[in-house]
Design a protein around this nucleic acid. Structure first.
Lengths: 208, 208
DNA sequence: CACGTTATTGGTCATGCGACCAATACCTTA
DNA sequence: TAAGGTATTGGTCGCATGACCAATAACGTG
């Protein structure tokens, strides 16, 4: 009957607790932004005292970086599928990048890109994630060439870079409240991808 | 001989002082970032007491917005020239966007785009500036069509949007420390502009 | 030249942040 | 089962921020 206001102290294995903290921080990063990852905020969400967060991450910046990497790595699976028909994967990548599903992710990238201005360590982590995306997309394009969907004359890395810049360009507007609608905007990634890969116009547009 | 440590109190016309404050804040915005625009920072730079800044801007957010608009409007003159041969202007726009001169400006855009996530008023101001850029670039493209440099079949607004997204895409890497070099990146804006405007390949590359 | 307006000062207050630390209680292990 | 390691607590400290306010002094105006 006496529901004690003080929660019983639960002790966990360090790795487990650490993972839990990072996961919670990643959730904050995606939903509220990296600068909202605060010792107190993470602690409160976990029903834990702030000092515990400091215990695992003496410097908050390290937690922020870990959270960013975790969130990006997790979302990557859906953005750049690892298996399946090359052109289908490419179409899904384009569709995801242009659709509303990627809004949170774009916001996070924007967030991290800006914050990198002040935090060299975050900038470094960000570049690593960029490199992973690049490698993955290059592989995908090479697979498309092997499959005969893309002409041999296409330089995979050049096309990859163009597509990723297009994704970031569209993502730059992730925080714009106004619903600016125009085909040139709504299909930019598809159009650039078709152009970069030498595909016929409309090949990558939804349902194309 | 007694150089008094206390500066004499100088009283200025309100509009003048206000402009001075905004200019200083804009300088901070470009050089250090919008979040570094603080009552104390601006006051110190101007050799003035913090309370004075609050007197002119009871809410700091309004100063931040004014500084952003001022900085963007000021830099726009160099990015999108208002006069001259259309293709020369287009070439300058492309050159500026790809060159290191625009780094500070790209950082500021990135900064504002991210901050817009938390500040609706800033988001609104940002969209206004975007609209101005769009109008200006559309005019430029229309002039190029009239001059016969661009085919009539090109939709000015569609091409404008593509070019601006390309600019933002490249600008997204403004805070990346690593000197990532690749033609597809270094000439992205030129390539997209040529593609969007139906120009021959290389027409807008430097010295093209 | 006197007066009133207000630009400017100097100081205070509450808030949220990261960091630090000693005390405590849980778990493992010997 | 006793002991030791450490995960966890509870509390403090210094710092930077925005906002607020009364006192003061410069300037325009009658």
């Amino acid at each position: 009957m006496v529901s004690s206001p003080i929660a019983p102290r639960t002790r966990r294995r360090p790795e487990e607790r650490r993972a839990e903290i990072i996961a919670e921080a990643a959730s904050i990063a995606l939903g509220e932004g990296l600068e909202r990852i605060t010792v107190r905020a993470v602690a409160e969400r976990l029903g834990v005292r702030p000092g515990l967060i400091t215990h695992y991450f003496p410097a908050v910046e390290d937690l922020v970086i870990a959270a960013f990497v975790q969130a990006i790595a997790h979302e990557r699976e859906e953005l750049i599928p690892a298996e399946g028909d090359p052109m289908q994967r490419m179409a899904q990548l384009v569709s995801r990048a242009e659709g509303p599903e990627s809004r949170e992710l774009s916001r996070l990238w924007l967030n991290a890109r800006h914050l990198s201005r002040f935090r060299p360590a975050l900038a470094e982590a960000l570049e690593e994630q960029e490199a992973i995306d690049r490698d993955r997309l290059v592989e995908l394009i090479e697979a498309a060439i092997v499959a005969g969907d893309v002409t041999e004359g296409v330089d995979p890395l050049a096309a990859c870079i163009r597509i990723l810049i297009a994704v970031d360009g569209v993502g730059a507007y992730a925080n714009d409240p106004g619903a600016f609608e125009h085909d040139a905007y709504g299909h930019f990634v598809a159009d650039v991808a078709e152009w970069a890969l030498g595909l016929r116009a409309g090949a990558l547009r939804r349902g194309g």
